[in-house]
Write a protein that binds this DNA or RNA. Structure first.
Lengths: 293, 293
DNA sequence: TTGTAAGCGTTATCAG
DNA sequence: CTGATAACGCTTACAA
């Protein structure tokens, strides 16, 4: 920066003003040009550590994605964040809960903000941080259930995990709400705990289809079905939610729903940066119709 | 830090010396104690940004895991890195190639080192950076092939991807080497490109088993088998490599091999930190014997 | 054995 | 409109 200042015959302060488009400064176009040109020629790159020291926080935001299902929906949310944050000159770091040293790294970074999606889901002030993702969730579950209804199913169970993850519990509630909105009877829970007899038991109760909270849960159900000589969708239709890459590899290939979480990611980023939401309008959820339902 | 200095009646420099066990400084135990106690009482936490500015690099190392298969082996490698780096006060960041803003974040961090595993595999000076992981690879492939041999297979194909990832190409070479060491004929390549007829064609060529470069490739083979009315291991035995969580969900459940990559992670970290390798001795690879082979 | 002071590269305040 | 200058929190010669 000192070199740029020298090369363009101004002070470091002026360089800073120009390069950051500092508001409330009135610098002649000629000077600005000279500074910018010099910066470009010298290959000036702001030193982010120094900037972070000065600003009290780095221009990095962290997304804690610890317990989240890792499918297309998350990737897509991340892509959205990436886009907007990148455009604003911010960096994005995704933490998948790798371990202590990862936590150490994150605190060392002094991020500008951290988006803790799992925590957000638990708390009440959600829409602030997730760009409305959650609030749209019931609508997305509608898409999932509707696909089943269109195929003649009304007795639908919902596959939930054995452990009680708060995030997944919230999802379960959304499925119930969606079922209510569609005038469906409240869905029976199918607790996925490795017992291959569970789905067969459901059949006896008259259930004809299962909507899973996540693709992985759906896959577990398919596995249990296969283990007991049953098959999807003949004996039981199964639909997932997340579009993980390995859902497509299964046989029968998993039917699932894919969200346009990218728009939510963009909205999250924009609110985080204090920008207007803009045009990031999420497309409706889409059923990826494969073989299992 | 100023407060700690004041509280213990010494200068900031002394505080720094004590807290970092600066070599070549001879500070009486009494003083050291006072300083440490004060630091603890005041809850002093070194400011990593300031430190990074001063040192020219943060105490963070980045692992670029972009194109790598994401199964147990990678997680285990990461766990090993995590352990050693954490113990040395370093942070670890894993970059899964999320996008531009992630790259921006990484450069903004000025990491002490970056371990670019994919690049390492391509380059010649590998054992420097991966703790000998690669060099042990042939031995691990031996385990994979031996499992097949023990079940009477000698005509073995290797499932490789359609695109030519340099990392996977390297793996393919290791399988060939392992086959040679076992006195097996050079394995035919099974190019996994979504064509479900490929495995059936292999059968005609007399092949009875497939060793896949990764679990995902193995799963694709299983899917192709299912699509053509064949099954594993009856028609074709299939063994994966990586122990991904969804391999266990498939039916037939995928037999695969799991590495003790944790030890390699630890070794990588230690060489990176300039420490002696120590006791991190990798256990031999283990076959996770499920249904597919 | 301890303290002083320079400096890491920015940004922001305040005079000119 | 522009330029000194003072922080930000830490490390490390060098002095005492």
């Amino acid at each position: 920066m000192r070199d740029v200042a020298a090369a363009s015959g101004v002070s470091q302060a002026t360089v800073s003003f120009v390069l950051n488009d500092a508001p409330g400064q009135t610098i002649p176009a000629a000077t600005r040009d000279r500074v910018r040109r010099a910066a470009a020629e010298l290959g000036y790159r702001p030193h982010s550590i120094a900037r972070a020291l000065r600003e009290g926080a780095s221009r990095i935001v962290v997304l804690e994605a610890g317990g989240l299902p890792r499918g297309h929906n998350l990737s897509s949310f991340i892509a959205g964040l990436d886009e907007e944050l990148g455009a604003a000159g911010f960096g994005l770091l995704v933490a998948y809960g790798e371990g202590v040293s990862a936590q150490a790294a994150i605190t060392a970074i002094e991020p500008r903000a951290v988006i803790d999606l799992p925590a957000v889901y638990a708390g009440p002030d959600r829409d602030v941080a997730d760009g409305g993702w959650i609030d749209g969730m019931v609508a997305h579950r509608l898409v999932q259930l509707r696909h089943l209804m269109e195929r003649g199913h009304r007795a639908i169970a919902v596959a939930v995990p054995a452990d009680d993850d708060p995030f997944l519990a919230l999802m379960a509630g959304q499925v119930r709400d969606a079922a209510g909105e569609l005038g469906l009877p409240s869905p029976l829970p199918l607790v996925v705990d490795g017992d291959p007899e569970k789905p067969a038991g459901l059949l006896k109760a008259g259930v004809t289809a299962v909507a899973a909270l996540t693709d992985d849960l759906a896959l577990s159900v398919l596995a249990a079905l296969a283990d007991t000589g049953l098959s999807a969708p003949g004996d039981l239709a199964v639909i997932g939610f997340d579009d993980t890459p390995h859902g497509a590899l299964w046989r029968p290939a998993l039917t699932t729903v894919r969200l346009d979480a990218r728009a939510y990611g963009r909205r999250t980023a924009r609110t985080l940066l204090g920008l207007p939401i803009g045009d990031a309008r999420p497309a409706p959820a889409r059923v990826i119709s494969r073989a299992s339902a």
